[in-house]
Amino acid sequence: MIELIISAAVLASMYGLVAIGISFTWASIGMLNLAQGFIFTAGGYAAYLYAQTLTNMGITEGPVMSIGLLVSGMAGSAVAGLFVGSIAFLPLQDRANFRTRGLIATLAISLIGTQLWLIFFGPQSKPLPPIFGTGRIEIGSGGVSYSQLGAIVIATLMLTAVIMWMRSSRAGLQMRAMMMNPLGAAVVGVSVRVTGMRVLAISGALTGLASVMLAQTFFVSPTSGVQPLTVGLIISLAGGLGSIPGTVIAAAIVGLAEALTARYLAQSLVPFVLFGIVVLILVFRPRGLGGLLEDVRE
């Protein structure tokens, strides 16, 4: 039972990080970033390169390795986010049909990105050294491994930090303002272009964090971003694009459903259960769980 809850929580927090990145980007700059899978993989590879460098220097574990892995993953993804922004966001931002064209542009980037990873890193999966050690804590009948615990804790901390920052700082206020009314934001001196790039970097960093921690179990490969992207999309949809509480709740539901289905039904049914849940949510609430923002925006 505990194991079930733990694995649900791990899945929820990882997918939640990716989903919040997607949701946040869409809400503030009106672009659906479907290159999030590419950004995800970029973080994984950045962490991999970092680990290799350290291993070559003779360091295989310790805080330098663990923290460095997390930081390099986040940095790699943030840079990838900026890269996506400079290609798909800046040139298109004030053109006609920005939404559709932005969507297609990010899709094209993700197509190119996968191939570039394939060219530079080859098709084999790359393992990352453990961040949180390999131990386990036994609780009652079940147990929880350090890496699961670490993933949950770090994801929660990170999310709380980002939300707090959004709530209280000037930059956060500017981002929220831009979500509500781009004209109003321009009038109070918020540059859509600068803030948009900032948003892309932050959601990239969140995705990178998820990437490094998921790589603990799934490794890094050129196509490892596809699954998180699709599940992230599904969650951000169900949560209502742009709503952080909605996304968190949706992530919890999806994580729980995935863990339950995998355990009591069959792994092969997971996709259909997830899909069914999301369709159900969307049929009853077409704007997702928290998607009131859309209405406000219109």
Binding site: A177, M180, N181, G184, V187
Partner: peptide
């Protein structure tokens, strides 16, 4: 500006 352009959700 005309039409206020305030931020309705804040």
């Amino acid at each position: 500006p005309q039409g206020d352009a305030i931020f309705p959700g804040l």
